[in-house]
């Protein structure tokens, strides 16, 4: 028991590693914001393209979406980071992570938006167009707000997945939160910094997970027995 406590919950070591962890947290937050923003905006374009009337736009988009959904993000990351240099394209770890995860998440967010856009009844855009709005105005002010509202829980849960995903950046030695924690662990032969990093992740993501559950709750239908 004491061995477990010393290995996983050594406060002194956590205090020592704290500045290191904070630097890593900063990278994790930056990375999360960049990837989520890129994913949310590229995803919207992907969704619009995949719902386009034009086949030459729709089919290739769907094919790419399926391709990026089929590859594990870590595979994509390692391919971008370790494979592309063979083609003469050497990206910094940060850019490699951003590129790989933005591609991956454009596909995922794209699917979520697509479901939302499909769920808006066609009468909505027809009546907006009939009132004289342009196609773009109709999309921005009538269709999109309804679509986003319908899929907010899914957008949120994908965002949780993205932030969890950023912990993979440590694999290509980007000095994010988990990388710093792992560094501190290998210096001290003590896992407490990783526990601390886990707690930080939980503090960031738990509220989001709760929020998603609240969205999905509604009245519980299961009777008491």
């Amino acid at each position: 028991m004491e061995a477990l406590r010393a290995q996983f919950f050594d406060l002194e070591i956590i205090v020592q590693a704290w500045p290191l962890l904070l630097q890593g947290l900063w990278i994790t937050l930056t990375l999360s914001v960049v990837v989520v923003t890129l994913g949310l905006s590229l995803g919207l374009l992907v969704a619009l393209a995949s719902l386009s009337e034009r086949r030459w736009l729709r089919w290739p988009t769907l094919a790419l979406v399926d391709l990026f959904r089929a590859l594990p993000p870590l595979v994509l990351l390692i391919f971008v980071y370790a494979g592309l240099p063979f083609a003469g394209l050497q990206l910094s770890p940060f850019l490699a992570v951003v590129l790989a995860f933005a591609l991956n998440n454009a596909a995922y967010y794209g699917e979520v938006y697509r479901a939302g856009l499909l769920a808006v009844p066609p009468g909505q855009s027809e009546s907006a167009r009939a009132s004289g709005m342009s196609a773009l105005q109709t999309l921005l002010w009538v269709v999109l707000p309804q679509a986003v509202r319908k899929v907010t829980p899914d957008l949120l849960s994908n965002t949780v997945e993205v932030i969890k995903l950023t912990s993979l950046a440590s694999v290509v030695s980007l000095a994010d939160l988990l990388y710093r924690a792992e560094m501190a662990r290998s210096l001290t032969y003590n896992s407490s910094p990783i526990v601390a990093a886990g707690v930080i992740y939980l503090l960031m993501l738990w509220p989001l997970v709760r929020l998603i559950s609240l969205f999905e709750r509604g009245d519980s239908q299961v009777p008491r027995h």
Partner: peptide
């Protein structure tokens, strides 16, 4: 049950993987 589900949904899986693989041996 809710606590369990929240915990594993919120934690990046790499964290427990590193803890179990590198940490547990030091605790025996």
């Amino acid at each position: 049950i809710v606590l369990f589900a929240d915990f594993w949904r919120a934690l990046p899986p790499l964290v427990p993987i590193l803890l179990l693989y590198f940490g547990l041996p030091n605790a025996g």
